[in-house]
Design a protein around this nucleic acid. Sequence first.
RNA 1: GGGCGCUUAGCUCAGUUGGUUAGAGCGUCUGGUUUACACCCAGAAGGUCAGUGGUUCGACUCCACUAGCGCCCACCA
Length: 879
Amino acid sequence: MSINIDSNYQASKYEDKIYKLWEDCGCFTPKIEKDKEPFVISMPPPNATGVLHLGHAVMLALEDIMIRYNRMQGTPSLWLPGTDHASIATQNKVEQILSKEGKNKYDLGRREFLKEVDKYVKNSQDIIRNQIRKMGASCDWTRERFTLDKGLTNAVQEVFIRMYKDGLIYRGDRIVNWCPRCESTLADDEVEYKELTEKLYWLKYGPFTLATTRPETKLGDTAVAVHPDDKRYKDMIGKKFMIPGVLGDFEIKVVGDTAVDPEFGSGAVKVTPSHSFTDYEIAKRHNLPFKSIINEKGQMMENCGKYAEMTTKECRKAILDDMDKMGLIENIEDYTHNLSICYRCGHTIEPLISAQWFIDVNKKAIKDGRKKLSIKEKAISVIREGDIKIIPKKFNKIYFHWMENLHDWCISRQIWYGHRIPVWHCKDCNEFVASKTKPNKKCKKCKGSKWKQDPDTLDTWFSSGLWTFSTLGWPEKTEDYKYFHPTSVMETGYDILFFWVARMIIMSTYILNEIPFKTVYLHGLVRDKNGQKMSKSKPETCIDPLEMIEKYGTDAVRLSLVIGSSPGNDIRLYEEKIAGYRNFVTKIWNASRFALMNIDEESLDKEFEPGMVKSIADKWILTRLQELIKKVNKDLKNYRFSDAGTSIYEFIWGMYCDWYLEISKGEHKNPAVLKYVLENVLKLLHPFTPFVTEKLWSFMKKDKLIINSTYPKVDKNLIFEDEANILEIIKEVIGRIRSIRAELKVEPSKLIHAIIYADKYVDGLESKRETIMRLARLESLELKEKGPKIKNAKVELVDKIEIYLPLKDMIDYKKEKNRLEKEYKQKSDYIQNLKKKLNNKGFIDNAPKDLIESEKAKLECENEKLNKLKFQLKELEKL
RNA sequence: GGGCGCUUAGCUCAGUUGGUUAGAGCGUCUGGUUUACACCCAGAAGGUCAGUGGUUCGACUCCACUAGCGCCCACCA
């Protein structure tokens, strides 16, 4: 057909238009077809804060591949997008913006502050939506959700109240991780650790000398702990001592506890039950008094005398001065340890005792046959029993370990932004009830009727734990929920396996008695070329996906993130890699351009049928295509996206372009096959590179979009093994001649003579005479079954085929002799190995039959080649 | 301290249940305006598969140990 297509595909020129076309046609929204099992992915909701980063890009690329593949198989496929309110992260972002204007959240008050957050979030969500579109994600926007939506909020309240009524949620005074900057609790796994070199202070402590990094906590000490078997202190266990301190003497008790390491420091530890997790546990075991001295702003409390209102840091300095004056400091040394910090703002964590809401992870609350399981036991069993499969498997162990060691989950946060805890406190007596709305009844205890809602909000992971079902309308029994849950695949980064994936499993199995998804696919972190984490603090290491999309096109960015990466392993990305896949996209573009130029209008409209297959080249490419279709389908079903992509890449570039299209340039054009292969290749590729394939599809004048077409299936009528093999031989022959030409430095423009004794392949080669002559650049070709050995010619062997190139003048005899001898040596070594193998009784007895046969065939073939080499060498000697 | 993983060509990585004369892309070298594509074409060089030992007829692949690198969990004051 006459065609007017640019010679370079300019992605940015088409992508937005194509996306709009898809979105407008409604194909992202699946139809509920009750006789078919749907394919469902809940998109991991990006935080409603910043911008799209490469982690999102990987997630979107992989999930879009799965969704498009399943959709093209006729499966109702739902990909539900949304955003997460990300309480602490978002609140911090807005606080930062306010602080630039010299304001803080208290200046605005809760209500006004939340209005600011909403404004910020709305804007941020718009940005994210557009970025998701830029990646080509074919998700169902009509079902988009936000964790703070009305429906999702209702789900959150419903779950809270049910868990509360089941006694799974309780309120208690417990030691918690407290971030004084965020002024909120954090869950155990929201604490990070940073290695830091500080000081270790050796203090005189009554009858003891002991080492501490936190001298300021001495004000909250109520005991000294030693190892129960430590001879040095054995006699002191159970006794009480008065300890001189900066605020006067105070009493401590000595306890024996195995948590103490006698090797560390002096073997004696001061115990501050209210501000250390270990000490809290020791105090619980020994019934020690608790004395809180640090408040929620990280300041010393009123009971700290002159130190009151100092921050812990200020207090440390002051108290050390005072201790020094009292002669209580014996020694100071450098000490490297891990400091706990907040994962959201990096501030030092202060453990302190506070009244918070917790989920009891050990209460036997789920019926499982006759037994009752705790939520963590249930969450372990669904993986162990294989109800949920994690890819790659290695994460099973990590998951089990984490789950087995899970402590009660602190779910209350002192953050303004989020789901308010649905609990109401009686203003008169502090009694409380769980309710979605303000209770209209009187307090059971004091008959008061004034209620105040709990000021705290819920951990953001509480709501995201419900994501797979809250987004489908639960607790209403909606059609969506009934049809689409459990979802099929949860695809996300391994870094949020605990934060999110584990929580979804807990929530879903408990609330619905149903798994949230059948398969978990975990991708790795995107790193730079040196394997470094890309961080905002080092902008030179950061690659901005949007900038790359602008420069190289979305399809290239997607390929660079998918090909060459495997589940659970980190992905190294660098610009050259993206450029490489851009080159591939251009290659596809040009291959299609060429094919289209050679397909007449009539052929374009005609349906393909096997009768249109003509030459052995046709049969070869069709055979390889069927193999490709088989492999790609298998790989995609097995989540081997990289393998599938690589196979398609190799087929298009290495087979279709380098050989089939090149052969087509001669006398062998077959528009029907050109079209058929192109069509199938575009379909195979579509999940990976949706934009360029859709654009090229449009040139083929189809009535349907490629996104709605059917994914290729193997057609057994189009497999022609014998002919395909002949073409492989022809490729080999051409390759050898080209190789000799290059080696002998025959000018590319010079045509040469060739004599080929092709044995049983003579007819096959004859049928491709024109191709061989053109691609090997021959001016004459003598093709026979057999013939006399030819002297003074360069000889090459392919299978049983002898190729003679009379290039006497160009042969460097010395070099040629070396080359032949080297090859002879190599060949005879190889033959020796084969013989050894075949003479080995163990091999003959144990190896599979077909392997033995193929090794025998190899030996025969190699022997024949060796003989021919011997002849060549002899001929050479004569000259 | 506990656990997990990685180590294959100069670089980035494939190599699915053990059977290939160990592959790709980038880079390098040689040569090219060949009816789409220089974001291209043709050809070439380059690896004792980290080391040692074991299992096996056969090990890049399985096991053990060693070395180097990385990650996760715990958190000892």
